[in-house]
């Protein structure tokens, strides 16, 4: 059996009625559903929420080498539950998937790990904070100061994270609406990590520094049934402000955005305020993927071109998607990360 096909099915338990990322739109029987107005509490909410169907700890970073070469890295831990309980041993219905990647201007390194919950191979504890799968770790005494490691067959990294700004609650105090029909998730971010450390690449070790952005999100039913994928932007402008914006593609495109001032002050924007328009496509992994975008948030005077550092940042994993560092120019300049899913 092909493990990847296997896992694709597993990751999308209701594969019969939906395909690919659209499977996230299935109804979550027995699972808890996010509710507006429930305050997030820390550090407890840094930890896992086993009664929600899916959850992730999603860190991306834009980095610069000693010679000015731009790099990007990704460290992601996904949790997917077969049933709304933590469980123990091999019977625990919690499954974990880790993705790690490093992107250089001309290469893209990716690797994946899969694990069962309940036996100690993967998991997350809130305090002290440890998120791990196999030998990969994001861990620290507090959430503000952590060490991040991952290794694949042809790359590795070992980084230090230091938060120099507050947590940012997305949407309505962490309640993030994902469709006009009201599908939602809990969503907060730490977009203010300074990151530094070493990339181990085939050509040798590279010391790097940069900015990292951590997204935390959990839900049981994040997409509407007609939504087939998303385009997700996390941009860090040179002036210290940040923009998170996404467009969910469906019968009608649904967008949302959060403007984050340099001091962490967040402004959420409803559907339609944020616009992302593909400018040009690239052929990546045999499909057409927009790797150049025009992104606008007129309320803040944002009108920028977002362009992939490396068009080939294809995540060739169980559920493949595009994820890579981007360069921002236009009304504002900066760097960021772009994630695109559901391109067949």
């Amino acid at each position: 059996m092909n493990v990847r096909v296997f896992f694709l099915l597993l990751w999308l338990p209701i594969a019969a009625q939906a395909q690919g990322f659209a499977g996230l739109g299935a109804t979550g029987d027995g699972f808890a559903v996010p509710e507006r107005g429930v305050p997030l509490t820390f550090p407890a909410d840094h930890g896992p929420h086993p009664d929600y169907r899916i959850e992730w700890w999603y860190l991306t970073a834009t980095l610069t080498g000693p010679d000015g070469t731009p790099y990007g890295l990704q460290w992601t831990l996904f949790r997917s539950a077969l049933a709304p309980e933590a469980g123990a041993g091999w019977d625990a219905p919690q499954l974990w998937m880790g993705h790690a990647a490093v992107t250089t201007p001309d290469r893209h390194f990716v690797t994946e790990r899969l694990a069962r919950g309940g036996v100690g191979q993967a998991g997350v504890t809130a305090s002290p904070f440890v998120a791990w799968i196999d030998d990969w770790q994001m861990a620290g005494d507090t959430f503000d100061e952590m060490r991040l490691t991952a290794t694949g067959p042809d790359f590795a990294y070992d980084m230090a994270l230091l938060a120099n700004g507050p947590l940012v609650l997305q949407g309505d105090a962490g309640y993030s609406v994902k469709s006009a029909a009201g599908q939602a998730s809990y969503y907060y971010s730490q977009p203010f990590f300074d990151i530094s450390g070493t990339l181990v690449l085939p050509e040798g070790e590279v010391p790097v520094t940069g900015q990292a952005w951590l997204d935390r999100e959990w839900s049981s039913q994040p997409l509407a049934s007609d939504q087939t994928g998303w385009d997700w932007f996390s941009l860090v402008f040179d002036d210290g402000a940040r923009l998170m914006g996404f467009a969910l593609r469906g019968d009608d495109t649904f967008t949302a955005a959060t403007w984050i001032a340099p001091d962490g002050q967040a402004t959420a924007y409803p559907d339609g305020a944020f616009q992302a328009e593909p400018l040009s496509q690239s052929t990546v992994a045999g499909r057409q993927i927009p790797t150049r975008w025009q992104v606008r948030l007129p309320d803040k005077g944002i009108d920028v071109t977002v362009e992939a550092l490396n068009e080939a940042a294809w995540m060739d994993v169980s559920v493949p998607y595009w994820e890579g560092p981007v360069m921002v120019s236009g009304s504002h300049s900066g760097r960021g990360y772009l994630e695109m899913t559901g391109y067949e």
């Binding site: 059996m1 493990v3 096909v5 296997f6 338990p13 219905p93 694990a115």
Partner: peptide, 21 residues
Amino acid sequence: DPLTAPGGLGPVSLSEGADIG
């Protein structure tokens, strides 16, 4: 353990209408 088993190992026809869970 199908999640960590190296490629190609395990029941081949698992995908045939099988509920992985």
